[in-house]
Design a protein around this nucleic acid. Structure first.
Length: 520
RNA sequence: GGCGGGGUAGCUCAGUUGGUUAGAGCGACGGUCUCAUAAUCCGUAGGUCGAGAGUUCGAAUCUCUCCCCCGCUACCA
């Protein structure tokens, strides 16, 4: 078997201090659509997701709940895994930063960077709140009376302390990083965030970062004589290579460098400063692309627990189906921009695009095939202009979708997939098979052509939407009478016309997307 | 304050390197078919392209000034 080209996509590893929410669902669904698309397009894909489990916050939350940090993490991890099953996420590995191989790799990576001379001992200076046993940043402390500083949590005065820590000499990679960004314009995406990052963080100068914490206990022990743990970010970022067996695992050799790290815009910074310079320090090549997604607002406002306007994606998926949620996220919002969720927009997308356009097309087409040909796909007898128009609509999809998917423009790929759906609805109107049917035997050949063309349209549609709406694609595929798995088929098959087997018996099912009755 | 991104039909947005009457979807209005989830399909809607000035034979698209909105400016993940 010839070697397939490799494709490696990652999501962020989610911090287990919070249960899965729509932001997690968004980036993960996007990564999944991309992974599925690439698989269908002939790539050997490795799709990584997981959880980030170390750090002071986790330790604190666990303590408050009277469990160990690991117990807390175990519980939240289950929530994530369940969530991803429900949304049809096809990850290859769910990595946890508490996994043994990750811990070892993180330590080895630390050693490697240290041996390379980029880790040194230094003084970390900052504010410390003694009662809370907590380090605070300059930006976190608040002004107290007489020029003193106070703790934002408890209001008590903080003191200036020094801690001996290990530092990563990020500043040494200033020039190298700037050059890399210049030479690789596609590295930092979306474009709109690029200057923001470069001007704010990179050009002003990279500062060395303290990468050990002796006051934090919950973390990976640093491979140094002192008792101290590796700073969570240094630990977490390494997941992308520990998951595939850096430095000499087979998977690492095959899949690294990653094709794209999909992340939230809030952590774009870490992925375009610390991460690339860490890799430079260790002599590892850099990922090809880092893509920051936007936030999803509710009714134009930031979602927050205090506002009580948090949208539960899993409730939506349970009510309207996982594909309705996936479709909304990928079609309504341009990946990379901030998006908005409203019940109205969801309903409009659902009824308009899914129920009326797609669901109804499947329904009306299969019903007619049952009525006119007992559900058996007839031999096509001729092809006219109207049929050619369907073919012409279907054929360019694969090429355009490849281009869009490489730029993570999911919404554009979906718009193109809908071209055929719309064209097929129009085709029915233009050919009016229900009228031909009344002509009896005289129109039989013509009717066969129309019905065959419709089945072909559905076949191509099922393949086109499979990466985005896997459950729906499977349902259409089965209704078309196929016994195998639509997801095992290839994107290239959308470019061919006339593949659905004559004589195949369809099996019409229930409505794919029952219309949502208007509220209010 | 600094840096960045935007202001285009009622709403959400497209508008490549400046070039004929500025586009799509949704909504609205009118019409049509009847296979279908009262779905589809067709037509209509006329927005000073934030404001002003400039460059040009010609600008939504380039330059300048101004107004408004948003994001980033944290060794928290």
């Amino acid at each position: 078997m010839p070697d397939k080209p490799a494709f490696y996509v990652t999501t962020p590893i989610y911090y287990v201090n919070d249960v899965p929410h729509i932001g997690h669902a968004y980036s993960t669904v996007g990564a999944d659509a991309l992974a599925r698309f690439k698989r269908m397009d002939g790539y050997e894909v490795y799709f990584l997701t997981g959880t980030d489990e170390h750090g002071q916050k986790i330790a604190k939350t666990a303590q408050e709940e009277g469990v160990t940090p690991l117990q807390l993490a175990d519980r939240v991890v289950e929530r994530f895994k369940e969530a991803w099953v429900k949304l049809g996420i096809t990850y290859d590995r769910f990595i946890r930063t508490t996994d043994e191989d990750h811990r070892k790799t993180a330590q080895a990576f630390f050693m490697k960077v240290r041996e390379a001379g980029y880790i040194y001992k230094g003084q970390y200076e900052g504010w410390y709140c003694l009662p809370d046993e907590k380090f605070l940043l300059d930006s976190e402390v608040e002004d107290g009376p007489n020029g003193t500083k106070t703790c934002p949590d408890c209001g008590r005065p903080v003191e200036r302390v020094k801690e001996e820590n290990y530092f990563f000499a990020m500043s040494k990679f200033q020039k190298q990083l700037e050059k890399y960004l210049e030479d690789h314009p596609e590295f930092l995406q979306p474009e709109s965030r690029k200057n923001e990052l470069i001007n704010n963080f990179i050009k002003p100068g990279l500062a060395d970062v303290s990468i050990t914490r002796s006051t934090v206990k919950w973390g990976i022990p640093a491979p140094v004589p002192e008792e101290t743990v590796i700073y969570v970010w240094f630990d977490a970022l390494i997941n992308y290579i520990s998951a595939i067996g850096w430095p000499d695992g087979e998977k690492f050799k095959k899949f690294w460098p990653a094709d794209v790290h999909i992340i939230g815009k809030d952590i774009l910074r870490f992925h375009t400063t610390i991460w690339p310079t860490m890799l430079m320090a260790a002599g590892v090549s850099l990922p090809k692309k880092v893509f920051g997604t936007g936030y999803i607002n509710k009714d134009g406002k930031k979602m927050s627990k205090s506002l009580g306007n948090v949208v539960d994606p899993f409730e939506l998926a349970a009510t309207y189906g996982p594909d309705a949620l996936r479709y909304y996220l990928l079609r309504e919002i341009a990946f990379g921009l901030d998006g908005n969720y409203t019940d109205e927009a969801f309903q409009t997308r659902f009824n308009g695009d899914l129920a009326n356009d797609l669901g109804n097309l499947v329904s009306r087409s299969l019903t007619m095939l049952e009525k006119y040909f007992d559900g058996i796909i007839p031999q096509v007898s001729f092809e006219g202009d109207l049929e050619s128009r369907l073919v012409i609509t279907a054929r360019p999809y694969a090429g355009l979708a490849r281009k869009y998917m490489d730029n993570l423009e999911f919404h554009n790929a979906l718009i193109k997939a809908w071209d055929l759906i719309k064209a097929a609805n129009k085709y029915i109107d233009q050919t009016a098979p229900y009228k031909i049917a009344k002509e009896g035997d005289a129109g039989k050949e013509k009717l066969a052509t129309v019905m065959y063309s419709l089945m072909e349209s559905l076949r191509v549609t099922a393949l086109s939407i499979a990466p985005f709406m896997p459950f729906t694609a499977t349902s259409i595929w089965k209704q078309l009478g196929y016994a195998d798995d639509v997801h095992k088929h290839s994107l290239a098959e959308t470019e061919e016309w006339g593949k659905i087997p004559v004589g195949q018996k369809i099996a019409k099912g229930q409505a794919l997307f029952p219309r949502i009755e208007k509220k209010k």
